[in-house]
């Protein structure tokens, strides 16, 4: 016969508490096992001492880290001017691909060609071609800077991806919203601006966050055409000190920025899933 427990917990609650305890014990044990295996096994590898010295050298780390941090500001700056430009250009391309007026048909073609080309070419190639090609025209001093043309390469490539995400966002707004807005007498343009776009942009914020994180990392590709940003700076140290630790330092600096950003994007994504239910 069923009897209520003395602790005031239901059968279900007692059962679930027991399950949680068991899960916690199993998870702790298995994690401890894996960590122990790594700590014991990796140093047993024949080359471990060499690797430890050339990748995890505290002395080299201390020596290079301040300079790396300084160089990272270059990444942050390039990122800071590219991101808004990408947002604007990406949105314009997305809108251009959906224009209906026959007079603007060339714009449509341009939008389609743009996204096809810049999504189809590896970023590093675009950086090379634009970053070396355009200054090669013999432009006068500030205009031959690799900062400008390297940034442009990033802006073009990322705008193509961002435009596609905006387009997906526009498609994700239910057509009944359009019908309702049209039925009130709004023009196609007003429907887009006042009803569809605000919802579309909101829907794609998490995806665009992920693009920003990817951009933050890809800024390093500009090192191949000149700017001394963090990856290039780490390379300088590597040559100078014959040690790879600066690369590990650079990786750590990236992670400090990208992990919170990734977590935040995941959080936004999860919240959106909840809201949709």
């Amino acid at each position: 016969m069923f009897r209520p427990s003395a602790t005031g917990l239901t059968r279900r609650e007692r059962y679930e508490a027991q399950q949680r305890r068991r899960a916690l014990i199993v998870a702790s044990a298995s994690t401890a096992g894996v960590v122990a295996a790594l700590v014991v096994l990796v140093p047993l590898a024949p080359g471990w001492d060499k690797v430890r010295n050339s990748f995890f050298n505290a002395e080299v780390f201390a020596k290079s880290f301040p300079k790396l941090l300084e160089a990272f500001w270059v990444n942050v700056m390039i990122f800071a001017w590219c991101a808004p430009a990408i947002a604007v250009l990406g949105l314009l391309i997305a809108l251009a691909r959906d224009v209906k007026s026959p007079a603007l048909f060339p714009l449509r073609i341009f939008g389609a060609a743009f996204t096809d080309i810049f999504r189809g070419v590896p970023v590093i190639l675009t950086v090379y071609l634009i970053g070396f090609g355009i200054p090669g025209l013999g432009l006068p001093r500030p205009w031959n800077s690799p900062y400008i043309w390297g940034s442009l390469a990033l802006i073009l490539t990322y705008s193509a991806y961002v435009a596609e995400i905006f387009r997906a966002g526009i498609d994700s707004v239910h057509h009944s919203q359009r019908a309702a807005a049209l039925s009130l007498g709004l023009s196609e343009r007003q429907v887009m601006r006042d009803v569809v776009l605000p919802q579309a942009v909101r829907n794609v914020v998490p995806s665009q966050m992920n693009m920003l994180i990817a951009l933050q990392k890809d800024v390093s590709l500009l090192s191949f055409i000149g700017p001394v940003e963090i990856f290039r700076q780490a390379g300088v140290f590597k040559s100078l000190l014959a040690n790879f630790t600066p690369y590990v330092g650079a990786a750590l600096i990236f992670l400090v920025v990208t992990i919170p950003a990734t977590r935040y994007a995941d959080h936004l994504m999860a919240r959106q899933m909840r809201d949709r239910r």
């Binding site: 009944s176 919203q177 019908a179 807005a181 039925s183 007498g185 709004l186 023009s187 007003q190 605000p198």
Partner: peptide, 26 residues
């Protein structure tokens, strides 16, 4: 005027702004 089965209010606006959008724009 038309009213739909699924209401179709604009979710990013308050009730008042929903009602004022068309008179303002049109």
């Amino acid at each position: 005027g038309m009213v739909f089965q699924s209401y179709n209010l604009f979710p990013h606006m308050t009730a008042l702004d929903n009602a004022m959008l068309a008179p303002r724009r049109v």
